[in-house]
């Protein structure tokens, strides 16, 4: 018995070590910097500074708002898409799946950069508009285009979990719903939607979390004009001539808390739905 146990510990050790070295220790560093001054003394001042600083608060609420919009739009596009995807024949499903996944095989930075070139003042779309005699449009540099960038980049993270939970719904339940006199809309609303809830929730987390911490997309799509919380963190560590690790770490810590809270909220909602198997993937 004890032998088996010690064997188990030995087997787990490398993973535990990995987790400590690359997850726990960095987190401790973040927390350390967030709660110390530049000279190393303990303080809450950084947290207070963050929440009372006009610019940081602007950026904070902006990030939340953009991320919520992006998540909502992703959901509205992804659900019907995933539903239709689960209804077509198997080979089409595989094809659609491939199409959804394909852009994800390319690096996010490359994709964002290409879109920036397409949307530029003299980019592909404006060239097309001009060739048919229309005025060029200034696409870049507003909130809409940044949200578009997030939706474009993170849509697959919404489609995949929803698709997987919809396709798990037992066909006989749908037949039963039909037999008992429910029309197609009623079936979706009363049977499919509740049963695909875990997929929706995990999709929401998987989109909201990367959106709220976005930084590269906002910089490229607004030419550095619209800052999000991730941009400010980058500035603090990297671009400023007086790098401020303490405030940088504080903002990172707040961001992590937001992510943890949103995970907790979603987990709470998905409780009791364990049998259907979806759950939060992250």
């Amino acid at each position: 018995m004890t032998k088996a146990k010690s064997g188990q510990v030995a087997l787990n050790a490398p993973y535990l070590l990995w987790a400590v070295a690359f997850i726990v220790v960095p987190l401790i560093f973040v927390a350390y910097y967030a709660f110390t001054t530049a000279d190393g003394g303990f303080t809450f001042q950084n947290i207070i500074t963050f929440f009372t600083h006009k610019q940081y608060m602007t950026v904070f609420w902006r990030s939340m708002l953009y991320a919520l919009w992006a998540t909502l739009i992703c959901l509205l596009i992804a659900y019907p898409f995933a539903y239709c995807m689960s209804k077509v024949n198997m080979s089409s499903q595989r094809m659609l799946m491939l199409l959804v996944m394909l852009p994800m095989l390319m690096n996010l930075i490359v994709r964002t950069y290409s879109w920036q070139q397409i949307l530029e003042r003299n980019g592909l779309i404006n060239k097309l508009l001009e060739s048919i005699g229309l005025e060029p449009v200034q696409f870049l540099g507003n909130a809409g285009v940044i949200i578009f960038g997030m939706v474009y980049n993170y849509l697959p993270f919404m489609i995949l979990p929803i698709y997987s939970s919809i396709s798990k719904v037992d066909k006989s339940l749908l037949e039963a719903s039909n037999d008992l006199g429910c029309n197609a809309f009623g079936t979706v609303r009363r049977v499919i939607l509740p049963m695909s809830l875990p997929g929706i929730l995990s999709g929401i987390t998987m989109v909201f979390v990367p959106c709220v911490s976005t930084f590269y997309i906002s910089r490229q799509f607004s030419d550095g004009n619209i800052k999000m919380i991730g941009d400010v963190i980058e500035d603090k560590f990297y671009r400023s001539s007086v790098p401020d690790y303490n405030i940088g770490a504080t903002i990172s810590l707040v961001l992590m808390l937001i992510i943890l809270i949103s995970l907790a909220v979603v987990n709470k909602f998905s409780d009791g739905d364990d049998e259907s198997g979806g759950g939060v993937v992250i």
């Binding site: 070139q117 530029e120 003042r121 003299n122 980019g123 540099g141 030419d223 550095g224 004009n225």
Partner: peptide, 19 residues
């Protein structure tokens, strides 16, 4: 008045006549 604040992105911007 600004279109944006850039560093090395300026190459693409100016080369393509975007600013």
């Amino acid at each position: 008045l600004l279109q944006g604040r850039v560093m090395d992105e300026v190459f693409n911007k100016m080369e393509a006549g975007n600013a």
